[in-house]
Design a protein around this nucleic acid. Structure first.
Length: 263
DNA sequence: ATAAATGTTAAGAA
DNA sequence: GTTCTTAACATTTA
């Protein structure tokens, strides 16, 4: 479910709890999301401690506590962050709940493909420090992208889904980018012309900005001239040429594209 | 009943 | 070393 902008949307939902001391903690007894050891560390270090800030990078989030504690969150396919009242009762798919005086901060994940990581140090954990440059930073330049993808023969869609190259891009965003650039998702990356590569880089950044504005802010529905609104509908049509969209499997993922527009 | 779902990773093969 | 394919993970929804 969550890609760059959805992650940002969920991250902000826990803002309600910032600077409110944790009074009580619930953890699911056997959870693949929150491992045994992380559960212990969190249980013994979160009470009377407060989240003071959070950040997102690609599909990862990091919550910083006042006293030497960090919580990393990856939402997997069906993870959600929720803020509710202190009276909230744990449900079947809740893996972690932090209770403050006025709120409950919930990590809910039915398929449990997400991951919660805990680190007890004063500096940000090492897995946060060695990250690929975020798409909207100045480090993600065309020159950088060129240098990282030089001679890559994989399919464009496959590379777009590679988090070490395009952090935050997921299935719908990868399709949206290919469609906007009129690039067939199975095109080999090293077959892209200079113009195509430049276009792909620009559209990638543009889509990230737009998605953060539209979905990241309040999860509103994107405009109808995005592929987004048409890609999941059976019989969906291409907003550019009004012909039926095509589907196939690329890189093990359902891929939606227009075989008239995308060459 | 069967398939597919906005993600990641591991294993084995080419 | 790179890339591809497949499977696995667990649950809900169409």
């Amino acid at each position: 479910m969550p890609e760059l902008a959805e992650v940002e949307f969920y991250r902000k939902r826990w803002n309600t709890g910032i600077k409110h001391p944790i009074q009580k903690i619930y953890t699911k007894s056997t959870s693949r999301v929150l491992a045994q050891e992380a559960t212990q560390t969190l249980r013994s270090n979160s009470i009377n401690n407060s989240i003071i800030e959070s950040s997102a990078s690609g599909k990862q989030m990091l919550f910083r506590f006042e006293k030497s504690l960090w919580l990393g969150v990856h939402l997997g396919m069906t993870g959600k962050l929720i803020s509710d009242t202190p009276a909230y009762q744990p449900g079947k798919h809740d893996h972690l709940i932090l209770f403050t005086e006025n709120h409950s901060l919930i990590y809910q994940d039915p398929r449990a493909f997400g991951k919660l990581k805990v680190d007890k140090s004063s500096n940000p954990p090492h897995w946060w420090q060695n990250r690929a440059p975020d798409i909207l930073t100045s480090d993600f330049s065309l020159a950088y992208l060129k240098s990282k993808t030089n001679n890559r023969t994989g399919k464009v869609k496959a590379l777009l889904l590679d988090q070490s190259l395009f952090p935050g891009i997921g299935n719908w965003m990868a399709d949206e980018i290919c469609w906007r650039c009129d690039i067939h998702p199975e095109t080999r990356f090293n077959q892209l012309s200079n113009d195509q590569l430049h276009g792909l880089w620009k559209e990638t950044r543009q889509l990230c900005r737009q998605a953060l504005r539209v979905i990241g802010r309040n999860w509103s529905t994107p405009p109808n001239d995005w592929l987004f609104n048409h890609r999941w509908k059976p019989g969906g049509i291409c907003p550019k040429c009004n012909k039926p969209l095509d589907r196939s499997t690329v890189n093990g993922r359902t891929t939606c594209f227009c075989n008239l527009c995308q060459k």
